[in-house]
Design a binder for these strands. Structure first.
Lengths: 206, 206
DNA sequence: GTATGATTCAATCAGTTGATTGAATTTCAA
DNA sequence: TTGAAATTCAATCAACTGATTGAATCATAC
């Protein structure tokens, strides 16, 4: 019944859920194929190794987010009256809006994006390379709007900016279990909180 | 040759290095015992299951840090002229000073502390419970020094504060590979950066 | 020195891991 | 309808997984 792309897509759908929840090492191919109702060999046939399957998930799931962040950034710095706030919005809005748009599946994307950033090798290098271009361009934008900082500070500011959204993506479920307020999960509100915290953090002392 | 406590301690020494580098699921007991030069059964004898071994590492390695953070916090809020900056120092200083004091082994502690916070189940619950008491007391301190915020904001401020140090602990090695300046890794300087960013982030808008 | 308890050991368990094979099946164009 | 390519399948591989056993070794108090 399922055509080529059906099985392939279906495996990706299931795989991303498992990788998101259990991490790379904690996910077995058996668990995926059992859940997907396909044969083990299907993974080898369509993707190759476990690592290549993970890479495929990253490519379909995470790469578009990074691409949009970069597009938004480039548009933002060209604007009249461009500022640091716009740069931060360019970083935070794409993933949060996409997650919201995807509905239930956004929860999976959220977990996957967050977890991927904190995986041990061999995933770490894979993800880190992915963000290399992103990192350079955002740091250049920081240089533009936050002149005269030390080089190390620019580096750390990018990591801080990144870590705040990783924190949000991986923790919003446990946090909401402790304290629920549906408004807090509106992407506009979340983006606003992250941008505000980060903007103030990078700004001058009060 | 090795007495009881020797073997037990030695296993812990090796285990924490593996868990720090490869995560819980990515670490096999074989890898640990091979590295430690002991028998597989030694782990079962001294600790029990793999999960109990991880718990023992957490207890010896991470628990003292949390305890000191809480002690520092309690001392800080009692002070004359207590303020938010003191609260943040109480949170950031203990782990960073300990890591510095431990020298080479501090790198392992650093990685372990950072990674533990981002592990999937069953580790996540273990660690999260550990931080529950810590979380409540710090959030109460936020309430004191940052009055009239919404409840959700206090919750997220704690998570942000936590995520910044997790970011630092897990990323300082790759970041230093990209840009090295030894001064940046002095605990006073690091604490200063984290406290400043966080303090500004939590403060009023400029 | 000997008995007792603590510790270590090799051997082994059953189950899982990622990966591969070659045969069976399906798909679809000619 | 037929034939070649794409896809799926059951069966199997060797290696590894966490865990357990009972015998051997050790330390120590008597």
């Amino acid at each position: 019944m399922p055509s080529k792309s059906d099985t392939k897509t279906h495996i990706l759908d299931i795989a991303e859920r498992h990788f998101a929840r259990d991490g790379f090492a904690g996910t077995s191919l058996r668990a995926i194929i059992k859940d997907a109702g396909v044969n083990v060999a299907a993974i080898a046939y369509h993707f190759g190794t476990k690592e290549e399957l993970y890479q495929a998930v990253t490519e379909r799931f995470a790469a578009p987010v990074v691409r949009e962040q970069l597009e938004r950034l480039r548009a933002e710095v060209k604007k009249d009256g461009a500022n640091l706030e716009g740069v931060l919005c360019a970083f935070y809005e794409p993933p949060l809006k996409l997650i919201k748009k995807m509905g239930k599946k956004g929860e999976v994307l959220s977990m996957f994006l967050g977890r991927a950033q904190t995986e041990p090798e061999p995933v770490f290098s894979l993800i880190d390379d992915h963000y290399q271009a992103c990192r350079n361009e955002f740091i250049n934008a920081f240089r533009k709007f936050l002149p005269d900082l030390e080089e190390g500070e620019y580096q750390w500011y990018f990591e801080f900016m990144l870590s705040l959204i990783v924190c949000f993506l991986t923790r919003h479920i446990p946090v909401r279990l402790r304290y629920t307020n549906d408004r807090d999960w509106e992407p506009e509100h979340v983006t606003g909180s992250l941008v505000e915290f980060c903007l103030k953090g990078m700004g001058k002392k009060n």
